[in-house]
Nucleic acid binder design. Structure first.
Lengths: 157, 157
DNA sequence: ATATTGCCTATGGTATATCATGGTAATTTA
DNA sequence: TAAATTACCATGATATACCATAGGCAATAT
């Protein structure tokens, strides 16, 4: 049985007064397997926290390095934004990370958080906001259904 | 069990009358792990100090040597500027470096400094200037979002 | 089918270690 | 020898690591 490294599912966990949240057990297993750590940052486009395994950022840094573009303006801006906002979060022996106020307030999270799998990444939402967002996404996808690759490849009809 | 060496996050530290600043603990850990030292120089394009682990400059130097098609005149000039300006900064037992007046005045830093992670590099800003710069960057990057490598990286595979 | 056992996860609480920072001594340099 | 630079010590605040408990799920036994 082959192992995969995809963040999946939707998990609701409590956030305590110190900002501590249990990282879902499945997520922890992935991180442990990869031998890296979790990195979180404010989503650029949504009121939510985004996270991924550190090696994804490592890949990004490597790409930038290899591009022989030590002085590019765009890359300069991009790296500032991503790496300036990102932060490593290691979990304690019970599997919890402590989210910073910056992240929590960006996502309007107070006492409850929703982890939403996104494959290589995942997101952390305020439950109410996620409920709205999920509806929006479902509607959006249905509208575009006829042109989605997914339908052509996997699910005829 | 650290596998990656990325400067991240945004950290505010105080600068005392002698120009001493604590290098953020995470940054120190990276330098220690790499077995090199910090190198700082005046940013060529922004009113800030730029820093990296010494081995990144090593790599830059190697690239110049090895490239057959030589770098452009401009890039050659730029690297000259960097190496001419760069200086090693070792931190004391409590983790502080002493920034020179040249660097401090270039970044308009007096009593407070902001460390901004950039992956392989990091920057040190005057807090007010960084606030302005961050806003500018966010707007800029959002405009270009669709063509950024970052998105491709995340979804690949 | 029901009950029992045991493991794992989520969560509350607390002790401990680490960090940033002020101060001072030792060393260098001019 | 004076000034400047560097290395070391001390402290409070903060974040981190650890301990303990409760609830849920699964496997096994009744």
């Amino acid at each position: 049985m082959r192992k995969t490294f995809l963040f999946m599912d939707t998990i609701y966990n409590k956030v305590d007064s110190k900002g501590r949240v249990s990282l879902p057990a499945d997520y922890r297993a992935i991180v442990k397997e990869l031998g890296t750590e979790i990195v979180c940052y404010r989503s650029l486009v949504s009121p939510c926290i985004e996270g991924c395994a550190e090696d994804l950022l490592e890949k990004l840094a490597a790409e930038i390095e290899d591009s022989n573009d030590f002085f590019s303006q765009t890359q300069d801006d991009l790296t500032n934004l991503i790496f300036g906002d990102a932060k490593r979060f290691s979990f304690d022996s019970t599997g919890r990370i402590v989210l910073s106020d910056k992240l929590l307030s960006h996502a309007n999270i107070t006492d409850m958080a929703v982890f939403v799998g996104k494959g290589r990444k995942f997101q952390i939402w305020n439950p109410e906001n996620w409920a709205v967002e999920e509806k929006r996404i479902r509607a959006e996808v249905l509208k575009k259904r006829p042109v989605l690759n997914w339908n052509k490849t996997g699910e005829k009809n």
